[in-house]
Design a protein around this nucleic acid. Structure first.
Lengths: 155, 155
DNA sequence: GGATTGAGGACCATTTTAGTCCTGTATAAA
DNA sequence: TTTATACAGGACTAAAATGGTCCTCAATCC
């Protein structure tokens, strides 16, 4: 499936909701109500987003969550990374990738390139894009051409 | 992580191995030996690939597996789909997507676009590319620009 | 001081994943 | 025709990831 986890999905929805009213703080309970998801789950998601530096939080009455930076400077990749960890299609696409099958594998270098291309694509999609209510066109002319990097990680 | 499952990883490795010697049939046991993975697991993977129409099999002595079509006509997307099902980043990116939160979600259309862009990227990577032993550059000029489709699935 | 709101983590149930194994069937070669 | 080879299909299990809940503590505002 190559699917996002459900929590990541929630995160995107919640982030988009905040992005549509960036000036005011959003309490977890309010957000949960707005997006029709259980409060504890939304709360958990929000905490992860704070820890990843995508949101800031304010405790106490009238507190809540805000974007840590403008929606145009938060990427889909950021959100995914916040919840699931680095975008990497295979074990060996990561920095700490320790694959003891490197010798017989024979596809690791190329997978890494694919992985990077996907990451580049997700980097180019911003929260501002996601939050648009009228479906927008994807940013064209992605820097895919630059994806010819020398292999960056061992396998 | 947005990671491929381990079986998908195996599938790619095994397919690449077959692609490097497309003329002869490859027995599961031989392949397992070549790629240094347990036989039953490799076998399971091969069966899935046959069912997906990416490999053909021949029983009996001197039997084994072959590519169902040239490596240049098998995409990374095909392999992923064979093992994990359709590439779709969110539930609602699929055809049968039944998301009862459509009203409050607000990001579904845009996720679908992202999902399609990823799929397009993976479509453009062929088994021939993956099987190259000398790392190759990713095919440039992906048809990302055409990813402005009207929404194709409901959420 | 009291109400509000987030932080942090423990905890559990469920699902998914990976991996193994067994029985059956087709095929080729002797 | 017999036999060894090799795939087909599915049942089964163990382990891990995931989703979700809850409780206690800390900060902040009024």
């Amino acid at each position: 499936m190559l699917k996002l986890s459900r929590l990541t999905d929630y995160a995107a929805v919640v982030m988009a909701q905040i992005a549509r009213h960036p000036e005011q703080p959003h309490a977890a309970a309010d957000l949960a109500e707005e997006v029709q998801l259980p409060h504890p789950t939304v709360s958990k998601t929000l905490k992860m987003l704070v820890r990843a530096g995508l949101l800031t939080s304010q405790r106490g009455a009238q507190g809540g969550y805000r974007l840590a930076r403008p929606a145009s400077q938060i990427s889909a990749s950021d959100i995914i990374t916040a919840i699931e960890g680095p975008v990497a299609m295979t074990e060996c696409s990561q920095d700490d990738g320790d694959c003891d099958l490197a010798a017989t594998c024979g596809v690791s270098d190329n997978w890494q390139r694919v992985s990077l291309a996907v990451r580049t694509l997700l980097d180019s999609v911003t929260l501002a894009h996601l939050a648009e209510t009228t479906p927008i066109k994807l940013p064209v002319r992605l820097p895919i051409q630059s994806v010819t990097l020398a292999s960056e990680a061992g396998c």
